[in-house]
């Protein structure tokens, strides 16, 4: 069989898998796994924001956190997601225990997802607050604002763009990591992919990949829209560079390091 022919067969297998309703319904169906993975991602994102934002914002308010912001993203980049997931699953705790609606190895997966959502959230929020210009801060002091007022009324609104960008990058990161969870027998849609590959049913594996990829793109577009709607700052006119209205606005350099898929 020539490689090209094999490719065509695999693609038709993929189509067959995607169009068979039996593969979508039921406890092992893709719909259930999809909801499970969305639930996992959402939970991890909320937990990461609850942990990361207060720390990053407070340090930013004090004008600190430069080292933290750099190190957190460096470490987050160098440690393979896969390795961390593997650790948590193999360790005595949390292991592969069922965890409520999150499925097998649910707790281990949520912990890993949360840890990998932290770097973009912390780095961007911290840099966002610290980059508020000193002149604006002095003006706030001059108006007699207390530390809290200065933070809530001046720094936070001005940093909102970067804070939101961090959250958006975390969404992409979390979804990608949640998919990888299947490599270590975790829950979620990645199972469709790994199962297909382990049983050399490539049509199924690719079908799972298509669903995961489409959802990833939809999430990214939704996150970008949310970012635009929630951002209180007027969009900075990018005079020097021409940018169209793409669904994925350009990332700010330095602070907005893209996550690791």
């Amino acid at each position: 069989m020539d490689p090209g022919g094999a490719g065509v067969i695999v693609i038709s297998d993929t189509w067959d898998y995607l169009t068979d309703p039996a593969n979508w319904t039921g406890d092992d169906g893709m719909l259930h796994l999809l909801v499970q993975q969305l639930l996992l991602s959402f939970t991890a994102l909320v937990v990461a924001a609850l942990i990361g934002l207060p720390i990053a914002l407070w340090l930013g308010h004090l004008g600190r956190g430069n080292l933290l912001a750099i190190n957190v993203s460096n470490v987050g980049r160098a440690v393979p997601t896969f390795a961390l997931l593997a650790f948590l699953v193999t360790a005595d705790w949390p292991g592969t225990a069922e965890f409520g609606p999150y499925g097998r190895a649910g707790l281990a997966t949520i912990i890993a997802l949360t840890l990998f959502a932290l770097p973009p959230i912390i780095t961007n929020a911290n840099v966002g607050i610290r980059e508020v210009s000193p002149a604006v801060r002095q003006a706030a002091d001059g108006m007699g604002m207390s530390g809290w007022q200065k933070f809530a009324r001046v720094e936070l609104p001005l940093a909102a763009s970067l804070i939101l960008l961090g959250l958006r990058l975390a969404v992409v990161q979390v979804w990608a990591t949640a998919t990888i969870a299947a490599l270590v027998a975790g829950p979620g849609l990645g199972n469709v992919i790994t199962e297909g590959f382990y049983r050399t049913n490539y049509g199924q594996g690719i079908a799972g990949a298509v669903v995961v990829a489409v959802v990833a793109l939809v999430l990214e577009v939704l996150a970008a829209l949310a970012q635009r709607v929630l951002d209180p700052n007027p969009r900075a006119p990018r005079t020097k560079r021409r940018r169209g209205m793409s669904a994925v606005p350009p990332m700010v350099t330095e602070a907005a390091e893209p996550p690791r898929p």
Binding site: W175, G190, I206, A213, L217
Partner: peptide
């Protein structure tokens, strides 16, 4: 935009998409 869109696709999904 295309490069960023590729980046959005999880690694575990991009590999199978290359397999055919």
């Amino acid at each position: 935009g295309t490069a960023t869109a590729i980046y959005t696709i999880p690694s575990l999904a991009l590999l199978p998409l290359m397999v055919p």
